[in-house]
Design a binder for these strands. Structure first.
Lengths: 344, 344
DNA sequence: GTGAAAGCGCTAACAG
DNA sequence: CTGTTAGCGCTTTCAC
């Protein structure tokens, strides 16, 4: 096949040269069964010879499939999203679908706008990563039966197709790990409590304590908002207690870094004096000193799972996809050890 | 503004409600000057009230601007590309342009296909990251004056708009660093010598030696192809020499890892017996043991620069954009030290 | 300044 | 099985 970048070979030209109508060519393109094999062959040959390339715009304008799926992400800043995208891309590579990427730069209104824009015929389906304001459009999309999936480790998504990480279990595992090490006073710094993931992580933490017949103490629960200063503030608050915890679980790595700063600022050592655990396993957590023990989210897998789910919806719109929760994995590194402080 | 996800508000409806023709609405949308200010105001208001969203497909089909730029990347596997995309995204965020992403999965034919596809009116301009077969389409694009930029650290791009890293200088700096440490026998493992970047890196290495009145010895130059086994083979070859080098510069990090394996396999230590330097600063290089000294490419900056360049071309197609070379940065880590071997 | 009308390339009924 | 005929929503001459 001659790939001619200039080519303006249209369906009409292919039709003319194959001695059929453009409708038939269209049928061939779309794999319509109602075409005599011989005709199909001939058209295919001409398309090939001419280096015909379907015009995406025209196709979708006319209301056909676009073979493109839309991806809306909050930003590309952390590398976090990159992992998810990679998973999506791997899965999409198996199919003939393309990807159009939109970055909302964390703006909820842009998000809703893009959704509206894309769902208007530009793509066949939508993957929404870490949506800010899903409520704004989920209902409309659902009503219109427009295929979409949320990648939503935050747990904000209502009852709609979504994949997320098992936050509850991740937090429980992390806390359980600290308990196994011998810690009995463990502080938690939560994320914004309006997010499902924060609630789940806190619940997981409490569940682990309960498993060990330990009470959940309000003084050991500090509400943050996923930012480093929150970790610093929370860590400092814990260390100011008459009886400070010997371990601190931060609901994300960024806050864990803040905790580490707070601990060091007090002249205390990690993990000798205080153990610290994070959540997310961002790349930085492996290279800080000491390397951070944390809960890894299966980002790439989440991307893959979301894509598979979308493909399934695209194929069988009637079945409902439900929600998938992927398991997290505890990554133990140098920021945790058995308590070595004063008395046991 | 009411964002209505279902909305099928078209230019016609806006026209009707503003008491003008659709042509005028189109003019307003496209910032045509030939519209009375009062009319413009009115139309704008109606568009706003109705939550009008332009249909991308129709626009580009009709031959107008698409306000989308196409991005073609080889893959998303390494995180390497992610950095570049981030730079592009940052720069694009300032404008009203959107991004459509294509992954070629390292297939040259897909690459040419996508280029043809996108350049057919789907996007206003193209950014090609690490192109495999630019020769296949550069001429056609240039002839058609279709805006595009290569992000091309490999230096494969001919004389066309491109941004790359300064490979020569990066290699010279790395070699100079080793020389400063006191190494006098330094081996180099090159990349595929048909690539401009490999040639430049080798030249930089030789230049540094020359600066110190040291000869470039053929026995200390091993040709690889950017793969780990090449590093292993090259490193082994060097260590088999009667007078092996005390430091090895690999033309990328992946080969440097291969070198490290070879060194360890000989029972030698890094950096005590052999210093190793890489190129790229891939994430892994920070976490291997010992952490790898390497030359960092300004990936995000390259993405930004490429985007700026494309925007400039979009604005002033007549000026020619030329080529930009961005500086690299030497990242010194644990894999290098002064030679401690036998005699000084 | 503004409107009317002709497509852009394709799909989707509806006939045959 | 295949052709005819309308558009999809927008831009763009060409008139007025």
């Amino acid at each position: 096949m001659v790939i001619d970048t200039d080519s303006r070979v249209t369906i009409v030209e292919v039709a003319a040269r194959s001695g059929v109508s453009s409708a038939t060519v269209s049928r061939v393109i779309n794999g319509d069964v109602h075409v005599r094999p011989a005709t199909r062959e001939r058209v295919l040959r001409v398309m090939h010879d001419l280096g015909y390339i379907a015009n995406r715009q025209a196709r979708s304008l006319a209301g056909g499939r676009t073979d493109v799926i839309g991806l809306i992400v909050p930003d590309l800043g952390t590398g976090y999203i990159g992992e998810i995208i990679r998973g999506i891309d791997i899965e999409l590579g198996q199919t003939g679908l393309d990807l159009i990427l939109y970055t909302t730069h964390r703006t909820a209104s842009k998000e809703a706008n893009y959704v509206a824009n894309l769902a208007q015929g530009m793509v066949d389906g939508l993957v929404l990563v870490l949506p800010r304001s899903p409520a704004d459009y989920i209902e409309a999309l659902t009503r219109r039966r427009f295929p979409f999936v949320l990648v939503d480790h935050q747990g904000t998504g209502r009852d709609c197709p979504a994949v997320g990480a098992n936050n509850w279990r991740g937090a429980r595992d992390a806390t359980e790990f600290l308990l196994q090490l011998g810690h009995t006073r463990i502080g938690i710094i939560t994320g914004s409590m309006d997010l499902g993931c924060s609630q789940d992580r806190l619940a997981g933490y409490r569940a682990a304590l309960q498993d060990h017949q330990l009470p959940a103490l309000p003084e050991l629960e500090y509400e943050g908002a996923f930012l480093q200063p929150d970790g610093y503030a929370g860590g400092s608050a814990f260390l100011d207690l008459a009886d400070p915890p010997s371990a601190i679980f931060a609901s994300n790595d960024v806050m864990a870094m803040g905790v580490m700063d707070a601990v060091r600022n007090r002249g205390l050592r990690i993990p000798d004096d205080i153990s610290v655990v994070g959540f997310d396993n961002i790349p930085q957590s492996a290279v800080v000193y000491p390397p951070l023990t944390t809960v890894q989210q299966p980002l790439e897998d989440m991307g893959r799972a979301a894509t598979q789910m979308l493909l399934r919806i695209l194929k069988r719109p009637e079945e409902n996809a439900g929600r998938v929760e992927l398991p997290t994995r505890l990554v133990t590194r140098g920021s945790t050890s058995a308590p070595k402080g004063r008395a046991g």
